[in-house]
Write a protein that binds this DNA or RNA. Structure first.
Lengths: 348, 348
DNA sequence: AAGATTTATTGGATCGTTCCAAACGAGTCA
DNA sequence: TGACTCGTTTGGAACGATCCAATAAATCTT
């Protein structure tokens, strides 16, 4: 069954031409005569020829048409949507992608980057695991392989990055909760050793200070950035002597968990307590109550990151480009604004 | 910057040996002298050599250490968890994976399969898009590349498959709702042109018939297998002259949507209405009410599928193997059993 | 009709690795 | 001393596609 592969030489023989001509046909070169092209294509179809990209990639001028994508947690909808956005662009551009999940493990990350490098990726998009250092990309950049960092920044890495405006988003969300009359606003979820969390907390704090409210550190509760983490965080927050009346959550997964946790203690999110998420995953719209969230449009971000990488791959010139995408607050029901504040902002 | 690649020849020169010896060192062959090995390894480190797998794969005896994974909808947690399970096993086995999302498009699926084939995958795991035919795998199997179909079966495909016991799961779930006293039980979500949906509906029907209840087709409501689809399905179901008091949902995403839809009309899932999902995604445990669901353990299924494929890749011999994994009903709160039925089944 | 030009086609070297058969030096045996 | 090991090492021919320079054939110039 496992017959030896059909090669250009077999096609050449069958079509009565040389392998060079077959190669030209494969590349849709205008140099070849129409009849010859037809003969060759017929032979290709007949023999069931499969192009061997590995062989073609040997010549160092060629591009492998493979990119690597590394994310931390694919079970988080945010990353899943991000990956889907990248996938769309890459597929359309004729690329395939290696995708690896690190689960925040630096070892795994190092391994997959090395493995992808050996397999000849022409570019990498990575949402780095916590603790990643600029040096981790050294082997790739030294080989002239463009890298785009998404979501989380790495200090000192001389590669491109695509981040969301965490500070502005958190600030706007907090201001929104303040405008609804809340004075005890918590920040729930996330680990404060990541830049992302720090930036969001920073925006949150500044909004409070601006409103003349003393930031209370007890209202900042760390937890895993997951649904379960959200449940845990809100439980701790509600045990405070002066519990919050609203919360900005580290991300949407935490926000869903916070809604769960509130309901578990008979508090209805959106009516008795204001909840705002961060990310703008698809479920945020469908959920009840629909989640008010700082939308970063994960799929769109994935698409942009992919385009950014493709641009660098195609240009051949690797020059780091730092891009911060703006975010927008999608006001829905979970913040409690729907009744009082209807129509002031778009809810799509 | 983009210096020409460092090759075995460069290493050989630097270490004062031949390229053959370097090759032996790379393969950790016992033939080479310890001192030589040390010299070579030093040179490798010093020059920053990166193994070129593409070149090695040219020789037809070699295995590419790449597998392809194709799924329908990565934004569905079920598939995301499935992919993560596969990723774990593949990473540990030293494989990297191409991952592609088809979004149920047959064209995309055809393209990505062809593209992966060109790139030299040594195996493929696929959750086929609706409408996939056995012939779509022909090019791969003809080349001796093992294929494992997961989740959805394809009639007549002479490749391995790993499916969950949809019939038994749906039947058990329905029986459970019946045992709680429900008589008007709906089946919500999914498209009835997929085998998965048909099997689940079949199990649902048989359980009703067994209990002496006439199956009412109006209670079977098709919709997209997503959270939004669940909202839509339950809305239609509740408009019936005799609305259901409980529902078995096509999958967990639909079940979450059904909970949302119920709440939107003031019906509390788990108290006023029994909801059972299918899949057993992680969020099912964290949600409030925790989702009663037919757990197929998506990550475990992904791991098993990966192991199945690896076994075939390593054995060299491709013989189709059909495996049906059993499922178990995880009784939690959303079905309303928690109060009446506490402790009868495990809830983990 | 000879030279210049255009249009098609082609051999061979090349990419980086593996693998085989051969060769090497050093020791062993008869 | 020659034949024979044994443990290491090594050229060179693959693998399958690309690309350059060269060629062949057809067309155009004058």
């Amino acid at each position: 069954m496992t017959r030896s592969r059909v090669t250009v030489i077999d096609i050449a023989r069958a079509a009565g031409v040389s392998k060079s001509t077959v190669s030209l046909v494969l590349q849709a070169s205008p140099l070849v005569n129409e009849q010859t092209r037809a003969k060759v294509n017929a032979a290709i179809r007949e023999l069931g020829y499969v192009y061997n990209r590995g062989a073609a990639n040997l010549r160092q001028t060629a591009s492998s048409k493979i990119v690597g994508i590394v994310v931390n947690d694919l079970t988080n909808s945010f990353f899943a949507e991000l990956a889907v956005g990248m996938d769309m662009v890459m597929q359309s551009a004729g690329f395939v992608q290696f995708l690896a999940n690190t689960g925040e493990s630096l070892d795994r990350q190092r391994e997959v980057i090395a493995s992808m490098h050996e397999h000849g990726i022409s570019g990498l998009i990575i949402s780095p695991a916590r603790g990643t250092e600029a040096a981790d990309f050294k082997p790739l950049t030294a080989a002239g392989i463009p890298v785009v960092i998404v979501v989380r920044n790495i200090a000192g890495a001389k590669v491109s990055s695509l981040l969301s405006d965490n500070y502005a988003g958190a600030r706007e969300a907090t201001e929104h909760l303040l405008s609804l009359g809340h004075r005890r606003i918590a920040f729930l979820g996330g680990f404060s050793d990541t830049t992302v969390a720090l930036e969001r907390v920073h925006g949150y704090r500044d909004a409070l200070v601006q409103a003349g409210i003393a930031a209370d550190d007890a209202l900042i509760v760390n937890s895993a950035p997951s649904r379960a983490g959200g449940v845990a965080a809100v439980e701790r927050a509600m045990l405070l002597a002066e519990p919050p009346t609203a919360a900005l959550c580290f991300n949407d997964a935490v926000a869903f968990g916070v809604c769960d946790g509130l309901r578990a203690r008979g508090v209805e999110p959106g009516r008795d307590f204001g909840v705002v998420g961060f990310d703008g995953v698809i479920e945020a719209q469908a959920a009840v109550p629909a989640l008010t969230t700082v939308s970063v449009d994960p799929q769109g971000m994935g698409r942009r990151a992919a385009q950014m990488l493709l641009k660098q791959i195609n240009s051949g010139r690797v020059e780091a480009e730092a891009m911060v995408t703006s975010v927008r607050l999608a006001v829905r029901q979970s913040c409690g604004a729907a009744m009082k504040d209807m129509g002031r902002r778009n809810t799509a």
